[in-house]
Design a protein around this nucleic acid. Structure first.
Length: 436
DNA sequence: AGTGTCTGCCCC
DNA sequence: ATTCTGC
DNA sequence: GCAGAATGGGCAGACACT
């Protein structure tokens, strides 16, 4: 697909606010894209180059984009900066300067542009900022002003077309509710929207299975601060402590000792960041497993939990030895998504926990969250008080027979942090002091 | 080696 | 993470 | 109620400069 054609679609999408209408336009865009380029069309329309978990990062944002525009259009940085301050958007600045200079497009395709952006992302090391700016400026000089409007917004993360992955899935399904459910399920176990779009085109969705090394989209908790409402919505529940740490997924394969770690946002974390997990196989009684957990810092005597700001200091690549001894981590395991080639996503929670308790050696590095099964709101209330007194964040309450549903859909997991009945961190009144 | 600036679909 | 808005 | 966008505080990584 020609970039100019692609830009026409994006312009139409930008002008549209009704999601139904956006979805129709997207369906047309996807229909016009062929098998070899549909992934790139999808990535760029969402302002991305690759799924999160591949760690493809441009390291070129607002400030460098302004330098890029100054270089590309031969203007002073101060002039570009003041234009940017006025417009508040690099895309409008690029389009305007491009129109003034009558920049002509060189018949680039979406694939061409995608590859050039990828090359910018892959550049690094000494002098790379200058090279990135140079490559980006060259690209801008080869595309028409309307395309520049959108392409320049991609690195700064401000495409803002009013849709995201969910809407792309709806567009891929093209009004077929059954197909939409299938695409959604496939996307949740392989959260690579470009890849999924390709599979839909080929009619090969049924090949998707969880895999060691590919993150599953995390299940998230809704917020509720009434225990009786929890029981009303979920019936029998499992009540567990909520730790204030980092959501961590641990993937393990014994055969080649493959250990992969992902965050809640499905970003990959280098194993050297958490060296204690290099031995995780000793504590897992399975050949393959995907564990859902919260990593939490403890004081070196292992007598108390550390707060989030301390725990997050462990998310680093340098000075690991020193930090690791100051901030030992333990992993509170609370779910098992996959074991020995079998997905547990559609198993009820208590069944998954039963297998989890047999699979993970509880104590030391890995600790299985304690839990109480109940349908009594007062029991939840008491546990909530108990965990708050222990310095924890509160409780997570899980529907006993709920499957592992990615995202915040439905009432399967609920969290309660503050005292029951309050409105959350910001209360109705705020203490303030007038300054100056 | 130390400091400053920018960046991060950062983490919460 | 929270909060707000359009649908 | 959902999807998307906008917002914040704090921290470490990457690179440029001296």
């Amino acid at each position: 697909m020609r970039l100019t054609r692609f830009a026409e679609f994006l312009e139409k999408l930008e002008k549209t606010s009704s999601r139904i209408e956006i979805t129709k336009i997207l369906t047309n865009l996807l229909n016009e894209s062929d098998q070899s380029e549909i992934d790139k069309v999808v990535y760029l329309s969402l302002g991305m180059l690759a799924p999160n978990y591949q760690g493809t990062i441009l390291n070129l944002a607002e400030k460098m984009m302004l330098r890029t525009l100054a270089y590309a259009y031969q203007k002073d940085l101060t002039e570009v900066t003041s234009l940017y301050k006025k417009e508040g958007d690099v895309g409008l600045v690029a389009q305007e300067l491009g129109e003034r200079l009558k920049v002509k497009d060189k018949n680039l395709t979406v694939t061409d542009v995608y590859e050039k952006l990828l090359a910018i992302a892959e550049d690094g090391g000494g002098g790379s900022q200058e090279r990135k700016v140079g490559k980006m400026a060259k690209l801008i000089g080869e595309i028409d002003p309307l395309s520049a409007r959108f392409i320049t917004r991609i690195p700064v993360g401000k495409l803002r077309l009013g849709f995201s992955e969910k809407t792309v899935i709806a567009a891929l399904a093209a009004q077929d509710p059954k197909l939409e459910k299938e695409i959604e399920a496939a996307y949740n176990i392989r959260p690579d929207i470009g890849y999924i779009a390709g599979l839909v085109k080929e009619n090969k969705l049924d090949t998707v299975e969880p895999e060691i090394g590919v993150p599953v989209a995390p299940m998230l908790a809704q917020r509720l601060n009434s225990t009786s409402e929890m029981v009303k919505k979920m019936g029998e529940v499992s009540v567990e402590p909520k730790f204030d740490g980092l959501r961590i997924f641990i993937h393990y394969r014994r055969k080649d000792n493959l250990i992969k770690i992902f965050t809640r946002n499905m970003n990959s974390i280098d194993i050297d960041t958490f060296p204690e997990l290099k031995e995780v196989g000793k504590f897992i009684h399975a050949d393959e497993a995907i564990l859902d957990s919260e990593a939490i810092g403890v004081d070196p005597k292992r007598e108390m939990f550390l707060d989030f700001q301390k725990t997050i200091q462990r998310r680093r690549k340098h000075d690991i030895g020193k930090t690791a001894s100051e901030i030992p981590l333990q992993f509170q395991i609370f779910d098992l998504i996959y074991i020995n080639g079998k997905s547990l996503i559609n198993e009820p929670y208590l069944k998954r926990r039963e297998i989890l308790e047999k699979t993970v050696q509880n104590g030391g590095l890995l600790r299985i969250d304690e839990n109480v099964i109940t349908d009594n709101p007062d029991v939840i209330k008491d546990l909530h008080q108990k965990y708050l007194k222990m310095g924890l964040e509160g409780v997570v309450v899980k529907r006993a027979n709920g499957t592992y549903v990615s995202g915040r859909t439905g009432w399967n997991w609920v969290k309660m942090k503050e005292v029951e009945g309050t409105r959350g961190k910001l209360s109705d009144t705020i203490d303030c002091v007038v300054m100056g």
